[in-house]
């Protein structure tokens, strides 16, 4: 399998301390400055954070974007379903932004990035799916691409059926070459792990608070190792 290197990353969550890490934004309301105001108004907080992080990692806007989220914008979807049940007409803007590829789509319009994009939901295996897809694109000849993993709390009505989650998003630039301060992503089989990985777990791992992360469903684990010179 192709080697995969973590070349750079950005993250957003108001639910932990930055501990001096400049790549982690902990503001309650991300600025969303990468997106013009007329487009930004339709993005939720996570969407604003993701667009800013993508712009920071890819100022040339020439990289493929893979965006994974287990639940997407559940609140918006549920609100529309309640409305439909009442016989209310659907709001076109809300419908447009409730789809799973909404944030990536707005980013593409705002930045002019016309590379491929993919929106992924994988029942708790989002991280494993992102890495598998990334290997595919790198094997296909891409030198680097952007991975996004974001989620927000599941609407109250469904909270009992899903693990508790907090708003967080992480964006990683991965590639086939160890450029800059890159670290090598090493995959292991059948690691110990109990619950599905969420964006906050990835942030914890990137900040060095965890050595390994594991996806119990795909029975794979990952750790970052320094690049040997």
């Amino acid at each position: 399998m192709t080697d995969l290197y973590l070349q750079d990353w950005r993250a957003w969550t108001p639910h932990r301390e930055a501990d001096g890490e400049s790549r982690l934004d902990t503001q309650d309301k991300p600025a969303g400055k990468a997106v013009p105001a007329m487009l930004r108004r339709r993005l939720n907080l996570i969407g604003r954070a993701v667009c800013d992080m993508l712009a920071a990692l890819d100022p040339e806007t020439n990289r493929i974007v893979l965006h994974a989220s287990r639940h997407g914008d559940g609140e918006r979807t549920l609100e529309m379903l309640y409305g439909l049940n009442e016989g209310d007409p659907l709001s076109p803007a809300r419908f447009g932004l409730s789809v799973h590829n909404a944030t990536a789509g707005v980013y593409s319009i705002a930045s002019g990035n016309r590379c491929s994009q993919q929106a992924i939901a994988a029942s708790g295996s989002e991280w494993a799916a992102l890495i598998a897809e990334a290997h595919g694109y790198l094997a296909d000849g891409q030198s680097s691409l952007l991975l996004v993993f974001s989620d927000q709390p599941v609407p109250q009505r469904f909270a009992a059926y899903a693990p508790a989650s907090l708003s967080a998003a992480v964006t990683l630039q991965v590639g086939s070459q160890p450029v800059g301060d890159a670290q090598r992503l090493v995959e292991t089989m059948n690691p110990a792990g109990d619950s599905p990985l969420q964006p906050l777990d990835i942030i914890d791992w990137l900040m060095g608070n965890r050595r390994r992360i594991a996806c119990p469903i795909s029975r794979r684990g990952w750790q970052l190792e320094p690049v040997r010179s």
Binding site: M38, P89, S91, P92, A93, G96
Partner: peptide
């Protein structure tokens, strides 16, 4: 003001409501 086609649909809906 710089509105777009989705805004036109949204505005049509608001006029109806």
């Amino acid at each position: 003001l710089g509105l777009d086609s989705i805004d036109a649909l949204e505005l049509g809906l608001a006029l109806q409501k």
